[in-house]
Design a protein around this nucleic acid. Structure first.
Lengths: 155, 155
DNA sequence: TATTTCTTGACAAAACTAGTCAAGAATTAT
DNA sequence: ATAATTCTTGACTAGTTTTGTCAAGAAATA
């Protein structure tokens, strides 16, 4: 199981663009150079981020990119879904034994479905601002179990 | 972002094997037929599961597979890691601006690292037994935020 | 007008996924 | 013993996806 470089590069580029906000615009070539990524490859990714309203581009001398939204409005689940596509939770074909469960639904389906939700939920709580502030660590959390609810009170 | 069929097939095969436990052994060809998967492709996967002690194989007429462990001992994170490999949280190269953060560590690194943990944590709480019992739904949970702790008491 | 920088789309090598094939080993029924 | 059944292993391959490259062009500015 792995994430593609495209998703990583997208978040990376956004981070660099955000960090240069005060110095006006940042060029593709600058990001590519500092990160040692092919700048023509980055173009594709930034172009995609632009088309979808995450960044703005300015052409011509001293041009470059800047954020089109505030850092706290750029949510990782949106970025990753754009670049990598929706998390696939493809079901199974319908004839096998596992599909004769309680609901007639595939017993495995829930697993992949819930895993997709889990990933999405995690990423939907993280904004570019969180990344800039180094505010990510320790956010993992075990899935809900029945007994969790018994021992817990929300005041 | 997507999971490969190999991982899905592995969990599927385990489910079918578990469901046939009472009727003794189940053959690759039976699983393959009911699920409409190539049986030669399944062989690879089951062979891998066997080598790593999740299932046992019996050769010869009326042979087939059975679980080598109890269903509650077969943990999804172990299965998926075996079949799909470790979740990659590859870092970044070291020279870009994002890496001059507080710790000198890449600001993006934490994101991928924590996402990997999140996925692993989710899967490590799900056994084959949970799948058989349809006990998966609703286990997604948002990441921990600082304010969560303030409003929460464990009795 | 020349230069810089983004824009777009076609193209391509490399890696990976998904699957096939074949020769063989172990087991059981006859 | 022998034949049939079933798993075992490894080599091979077609197709897709990833990770880029390349080139022609459009917009902006000095």
């Amino acid at each position: 199981m792995k994430l593609t470089t495209k998703g990583r590069y997208a978040v990376l580029a956004l981070t660099e663009i955000a960090l240069s906000e005060d110095k006006n615009l940042i060029k593709i070539s600058e990001i590519a150079k500092s990160q040692n990524i092919s700048s023509t490859y980055l173009e594709q990714i930034l172009s995609n981020l632009k088309r979808n309203g995450f960044v703005k581009a300015v052409r011509g001398p001293n041009g470059g990119y800047k954020l089109a939204l505030k850092a706290e409005e750029i949510i990782m689940s949106d970025v990753i879904e754009l670049i990598e596509g929706k998390i696939e939770t493809k079901g199974c074909s319908q004839k096998h034994i596992s599909c004769t469960g309680i609901s007639g639904k595939c017993l495995n389906h829930d697993l992949w479905d819930e895993l997709g939700k889990q990933i999405n939920l995690f990423l939907s709580h993280i904004s570019l601002k969180d990344i800039l502030e180094g505010n990510i660590l320790g956010r993992s959390r075990a899935p809900i179990l029945a007994q969790d609810c018994d021992n817990m009170t929300i005041n």
